[in-house]
Simulated scan of single mutants.
Amino acid sequence: MRALSIVHVVFSSRIAGGEHHCIDLANAQAALGHTVHVIGPAGSAVRHALDPRVSFHGLHLPLLRGARVKRLAARLGADIVHGHLGPACKATAAATSSARVGTLHVGYKTHHHARLDALVCVNSAQVDRLKDFGGLHRVIYNWAPERSSGTCASKAPSGSLRMEFGIPATAPVIGCVGRLHAAKGMHTLIQAFQRHAPADAHLVLIGEGPQRAELEALRGEDKRIHLLGFRWNVDELLGEMDLYVSSSREEQFPLAILEAMRARLPIVATATLGAREMLDPAQSAIVPVDDAPAMGQAIAAALEERHRNARQPVVYDMDRYDRSTAVRATLALYQDVIARQGATVQGLAGLSVEDARG
């Protein structure tokens, strides 16, 4: 495969699942010798998580982003422009001099994705929702992101979670990672925890977002519930937990579940598209969305089982979620899009010649 010039576009200032995926993909592609750029807001935290071989281009104002992405991609000689999340995919569609790809981190929307040349579906259910899409598509599963030891990771608090919050060594710890937003369902998780978890259990919420004040109010005086804010050392924190809970109302392919699987934790998850595709019901508890009693009962049962089997790790089949396989599949999709565009151009040129002869 020849070296490509690849431009990723992600318009988030914070880092959550889709941004993590973009960062890790860009870093992996640069490590393989491709020329990789990322376009995002000038003050984005994404910039500091990128490999030094990846160039970041900051946009200072959120105006005319499609036209600016188009000009910048042309100046950089981009073979591929790859959008992540809806607004970035919409801007990517304007880069008509390059092959345009989008990843469906959230889901297909005609006004964001229909004009792209190819789409990466992160679960198989998304394929059935591409009825008006005429480009290529592939199902390429995400992977648990690599946690670099670079600038951002070095700023993360390190050491014992239990020591930081005074949690006894024998107390069960339940964790959840995600943005503090209503879509993540953490208010339901707090309710489920308070009503059904053992009295000595602790709940750790890792992430930041607009719902923090609401969640703090819901927590009240319960000292067992800890809102850690954003942390980079997620793998280290998961290593001290007894149970992971994904409480989201909607998830296409949650990276946090993959991280919990990599940590070999038992998992309770709401029945989102992503969780249903990723988890085997024989190994994990899948409960209805927004159902605090069902979630709470599943948490209590999982902790009881965890105690009964002496914290035996859960071994998940992670072969489908291999980073190098997914990176290669993404690059292969790029090549297919480029080849398809080349064939179209040649076909149009042939038609022009025939027209001229006629």
Rank of each mutant, 00 (worst) to 15 (best):
H8Y: 12
V9L: 15
H21S: 05
A30T: 01
V36Q: 12
L59G: 04
H60Q: 09
R65F: 15
R65L: 15
A74W: 03
L76P: 12
H82A: 06
H82E: 03
C89V: 10
A91T: 02
V101N: 02
V101G: 11
T103K: 03
L104A: 11
Y108C: 08
H111Y: 15
H113C: 14
D117L: 08
V120D: 04
G134C: 03
L136N: 04
N142M: 12
A144M: 02
L161V: 00
E164S: 10
F165H: 15
V173E: 08
G175L: 06
C176Q: 13
A182Y: 07
M186A: 06
F193P: 12
R195D: 15
A197G: 07
A199V: 14
D222K: 00
W232M: 07
M241Q: 01
D242K: 00
Y244P: 14
L258K: 01
A263D: 04
R264W: 03
V268A: 08
G274C: 07
R276K: 08
D280K: 00
V287S: 10
P288T: 02
D291G: 06
A292W: 09
I299G: 11
I299Y: 15
R308M: 11
N309Y: 09
Y321I: 01
Y321A: 06
S324F: 14
A326Q: 01
A329Q: 10
L333W: 05
V337M: 13
I338Y: 12
L348E: 12
A356I: 10
R357F: 13
